[in-house]
Design a protein around this nucleic acid. Structure first.
Length: 103
DNA sequence: AAATTGACGGGTG
DNA sequence: CCACCCGCCAATT
């Protein structure tokens, strides 16, 4: 696994329950300021197993970004189960739930 | 080896 | 607020 991919994995693993991070935020921390799509790609290939809290990753608008209805619904459910308010449009209040790692 | 695919983001109008 | 464009680059085909 490439170093960049590993850093992305580590960052996602570090998101606490009840919090979310954005794709762009993760990409920037992993060292690629405009690498949000790479984060998406990585999530696609790793979503199966690996025990990653993939559901805590959303887009910069604060919206659940997954297209597939079933998976989207699951993500919303997971988030609500850990106390994150998600409305029926899949919108999360970033102000209240976004996680900012301390270095 | 080359093209395609994305669960994106920031800028512009 | 919305629609559109284009840069980004790992993984897959």
């Amino acid at each position: 696994m490439k170093p960049y991919t590993m850093r992305v994995v580590e960052i996602i693993k570090a998101i606490p329950e009840g919090h979310v991070m954005t794709y762009g935020q993760i990409a920037e921390m992993a060292g690629s300021r405009r690498g949000a799509r790479q984060v998406v790609r990585i999530l696609h290939s790793l979503s199966a197993a690996h025990g990653l809290p993939w559901h805590r990753v959303i887009n910069s608008k604060g919206e659940v970004a997954i297209r597939d209805d079933e998976a989207r619904y699951m993500q919303i459910l997971y988030l609500q189960n850990e106390g994150v308010a998600v409305d029926d449009q899949g919108m999360v209040d970033l102000e209240q739930n976004q996680f900012f790692p301390s270095i």
